[in-house]
Amino acid sequence: MTIDFSFLARYQDALLMGLGMTLRLTLIAFALGIVWGFVLALLRNSSIAPVRWIAAVYVEFFRGTPVLIQIFWIFYCMPIFLGTDLSNFTAAVLCLTLYGGAIMSETFRAGMKSIGREQYDACHALGLSPWTRATRIVLPQATLRSVPVLLSNGIGIFKESSLVSAIGMMELMFIGTTISNRTGRPVEVFTAVALIYFVVAFPLTRLVTWLEKRILKRFAI
């Protein structure tokens, strides 16, 4: 069979709309996930042991199970618990946030852990209060170290967002599958969809590398 991409021009708007939805899902889940991830990281360092345990189990569970099953679980099971239906948009955002938060809490934790003992000694020797130490020394350094990885996590969420097509969310993947089914031309459609994802994700991965180098050069951390 001949490969001909030209018919895709007719579906340009649909694909762009799908990409728009994918980006919207990604950005919302990314923003909420950062907040949730930071809270989780703090909970995992809590002085109350049960709080630490629950947070750890949460994180390990979301990291240790397929995202697809998390999506199904939230979409099909949450409504039974909550007693109301979730729109697939809500379910998609919720799932990606809960998952993203678990991943990003690990990033924050690694960032906090990587601050050397000498930095704490110096804070001590200068008589800085625990509050000043946390807000002026630990948090900024942890953030600087975490930013590139958080961005990578964001790219991960962008890719995982394709899974919400399984619960009928009309994002890029879903629209691609629909077009493929309707036209019977999977080669062109899936190649195009893959390229659209690539065109967004690839520059971002370069940005991550660039940021990493820049932070390393500027601050040597």
Binding site: E118, D121, A122, P140, Q141, A220, I221
Partner: peptide, 8 residues
């Protein structure tokens, strides 16, 4: 020994 300046 290792300066321990705040890098940020």
């Amino acid at each position: 020994q290792h300066y321990t300046l705040f890098p940020h």
